[in-house]
């Protein structure tokens, strides 16, 4: 695998994680988290774990995101930190 591609993906992952944790708008945070999961899925696929990538994309990026959005639609959208 091309290692700099992997490196940049990892870098993006870290950035996405930090953004997801620091954004004050919950919807934005959840969207970032979905992006994070999707990036992770891409990375997993690159590493040859297609099954895991598929599952991560469906469950991590898809279902978790939808769950979170569903929950946020019930609770408040802004957060203290």
């Amino acid at each position: 695998m091309i290692w700099w591609l992997e490196l940049s993906l990892f870098g993006l992952l870290v950035v996405a994680a930090l953004i997801a944790l620091s954004v004050r708008d919950m919807i934005a945070a959840v969207a970032t988290l979905s992006v994070y999961s999707f990036l992770a899925a891409v990375l997993l696929a690159l590493m040859g774990a297609v099954d895991v990538a598929l599952t991560e994309a469906a469950l991590g990026a898809g279902v978790t995101g939808v769950f979170l959005i569903g929950a946020i639609s019930v609770v408040e959208r802004r957060t203290p930190d």
Binding site: A17, L21, Y36, S37, L44, E56, P80, D81
Partner: peptide, 22 residues
């Protein structure tokens, strides 16, 4: 402080472990 953020943190933590194994 936000419980939602804690859950998001949990998600990040778990996917990091997944990446580690793979």
């Amino acid at each position: 402080r936000s419980l939602v953020k804690q859950v998001i943190g949990l998600s990040i933590f778990q996917s990091a472990i997944i990446l580690f194994f793979i």
